[in-house]
Amino acid sequence: MSLSLSINLSMASTIFTSNPSLLFRYTRLRRPQQCPLEQLKVTQRNVWLRRWSVEAASMVAPVVKTKAKAGSRLARVWREIQGVDDWEDFVEPMNTLLQDEIMRYAVFVMVCYMACDLEPTSKRFLNCKYGKKNMLREVGMDGCGYEVTKYIYMTPDSSITTQFGTCPGRWIGYVAVSSDDEVKRLRRRDIIVIFHGMVTNTEWTANLISSLIPARLDPHNPRPDVKVESSYMNLYTSDDSVCKFSHGSCREQLLSELSRIIKEYRDEELSITISGHSMGGSLAWLLAYDIAELGLNRDGLNHEVPITVCLFDSPSIGNSSFKERCEELGVNVLRIVNGNKLIIEHGF
């Protein structure tokens, strides 16, 4: 059975003893009054973006530089670190390898914010500032051991109009695969899917106006008792055929790319790690359930590929039946939460 573990940020003295807390530093970078970026005055927005860029860059460099130190130890216990035994004896007290891995995936989430164009006057507003081949290098992650294979776009409930026109589709994250050198360090080919959180008015509104609906992601077994938040399901499954960047819904893009990657590396040891912050964490959890429910996490020998979800400040997204089904499917969920954050939840 798999468990959903919640680690409160008040445990930072235990979790992040050797490094400044990435997550606490992130909370200090929150926007004034937590309002969407496009509502800030120009001067406020520019100051916040400059501060964000400097702070985020200082967080990325140490993680990239020190990641090789624990390579051999991590290779021996990577399945336990990924949660196959429900992180037994790894959380209390916090295992240093698990601590390092949480930090590593947190940085991959930070990359989403660093690479996303949050300047409303830009032609690429709400899209990535860089091409996928150069993105990790541009944000200071060159040498991180992963290669981006696909950008992911979603369609919110309503579009945003800019001076350059209207495009409902917006960049929400990326898929990446560990390089051959990183495979030697990790002892497996790690497939990561990373999502950023809410940055616009419509996303905040969708988070507040929501209700539980049946997920029904498996057409052969709809399971009407398994329910999730309608706002996240809409973001995950809505399709925008107009936007030039997206091809199909967020779900269709992800399932297609993950199926392709698993097929390409089907003869190797694989892992799937999905991470996100806030709304992005909810999409990460939904994707993990979807993959497992459809049985897409199978390698060339029909062995189950472990799925691990690492969530930062993410709300729960479903009812108790959703949680129970995730546990039955072996989806390993690790939630890192900020005890001071207020979020409306309908689920467990």
Rank of each mutant, 00 (worst) to 15 (best):
317 I>E: 02
341 K>V: 14
198 M>A: 14
330 G>D: 03
65 K>Y: 02
256 S>G: 14
242 V>D: 10
224 P>W: 03
203 E>F: 01
283 L>A: 01
144 C>L: 09
197 G>N: 02
339 G>D: 13
273 T>S: 02
76 R>Y: 09
145 G>V: 01
251 R>M: 12
344 I>N: 10
152 I>G: 10
198 M>T: 15
154 M>R: 13
162 T>D: 01
105 Y>T: 10
178 S>L: 01
214 P>H: 04
21 S>Y: 04
302 N>K: 13
78 W>Y: 15
177 V>F: 07
13 S>R: 01
53 S>W: 05
327 E>Y: 13
44 Q>L: 13
1 M>R: 13
332 N>S: 06
230 S>H: 04
264 E>V: 14
255 L>G: 03
253 Q>S: 12
196 H>I: 01
73 R>D: 11
300 G>E: 11
228 V>S: 00
108 F>P: 04
320 S>Q: 13
190 D>C: 08
7 I>W: 03
215 A>W: 09
111 V>W: 00
208 L>V: 10
173 G>L: 00
317 I>D: 00
15 I>E: 08
199 V>R: 01
31 R>L: 00
194 I>Q: 10
186 L>G: 07
75 A>P: 06
101 E>N: 03
44 Q>V: 13
163 Q>V: 14
132 K>A: 09
17 T>W: 00
251 R>A: 08
14 T>W: 09
6 S>L: 00
295 G>I: 07
140 G>H: 00
147 E>G: 07
184 K>W: 00
97 L>Y: 03
336 I>L: 13
74 L>D: 08
304 E>W: 06
